[in-house]
Design a protein around this nucleic acid. Structure first.
Lengths: 195, 195
DNA sequence: GTCTATAATTAGATAGAC
DNA sequence: GTCTATCTAATTATAGAC
């Protein structure tokens, strides 16, 4: 459709974000230069500014996109009605989603300090909304007598930390399969809340 | 004892490390300049190099000191013989120690990427040795029939992540006291391994 | 032990040619 | 849309005066 030779905006934009994601995850946002990102993509540093107004916005876009994807994926997940089944489904979903995106997960937890106040607020709101999904499951289960939790918010934070921690040590091709790990973690989560 | 006027090596060294700890925790290692650290201490940038050969070693020293302190503190802790009591003691110790040092904890988890290979190996060995303490408790408890864990290593990683996660949200003066939080977490840890 | 001054390098971001 | 060239500012680390 009459696109000019040398025009790649539809592919270069995503490649810039992919390169930034990989480099930020590996070396940290502050330690990565725009020149490094450009080299990874195969363009000159100046060309990056066609796809992001600045480095900070590039980071914020990655984090917000990740959290919106997390939220959308969880919203699309089937939700069992029984508390125990609902918690089991959440745990397995959480581990699956996070093991699929170790780099985005890493950045979303480690680079909060580098966000502007407005972007930080957006990111925290998205994360909070996702956590609320788990808290609702725990609250319903506690009300129904299926769980015993003295404080649903605290139990939520504890379970999220436990489940997300998988990304810190899990390596593909290791001793345990992904499914087996998810199974064991889901069982621990269930038992932790007295289910 | 005949110390020269203007000589402060015995106090400036620790102050350099304290300033670096605070700034690295707040803004990240790569985002903090030697000039910022010097300004925080109240000396010029050049003077810092009397106390550390370079920025990277300053970071490594902070992390290694933190992990050695963790190991020593745990070694000095009374160790109940019964598995349930031992796990309870570990959980409470872990939370207390980590809530006392949020900045060092943050750095020890977030700045691993900025260590040289040798320092990284030292840090990982220290962390692993500490984790082994918890794994031994779980293994003994499982052997004695007090715990039900399909995989002690995995349960170890899950519990450590859960317990350490407290540092991500706990704020002094909040809704729950430190002791109450530790109590609830220790109970969840116990239940998670079927104790 | 601390300072000032500086070397050598690199950073983020922009301008203008093509 | 990308490149080259460049601006301005900041970086780590060192040298030498005091």
């Amino acid at each position: 459709m009459a696109r000019k030779t040398g025009s790649h905006s539809e592919t270069t934009g995503p490649r810039v974000r992919a390169a930034a994601l990989r480099l930020f995850a590996r070396h940290g946002y502050a330690a990565v230069s725009m020149r490094q990102i450009a080299a990874e993509v195969g363009v000159q540093a100046g060309a990056l500014y066609l796809y992001t107004p600045d480095k900070q916005t590039l980071l914020a876009d990655l984090m917000i996109a990740h959290l919106e994807e997390l939220h959308a994926a969880w919203a699309a997940e089937p939700k069992p009605g029984a508390p125990r089944a609902a918690l089991d489904a959440f745990a397995r979903f959480h581990i699956r989603f996070h093991l699929d995106r170790p780099e985005a997960v890493f950045i979303a937890y480690m680079e909060l300090r580098n966000l502007s106040p407005e972007n930080f607020a957006r990111v925290e709101a998205l994360r909070h909304r996702y956590e609320d999904g788990l808290e609702a499951i725990l609250a319903r289960g506690a009300a129904a007598g299926a769980f015993r939790v003295p404080d649903t918010r605290l139990a939520t934070m504890a379970l999220i930390a436990m489940l997300t921690g998988v990304t810190n040590w899990y390596r593909e091709g290791g001793r345990l399969s992904r499914g087996r790990v998810a199974e064991i973690y889901a069982d621990m989560a269930l038992k932790a809340v007295g289910g």
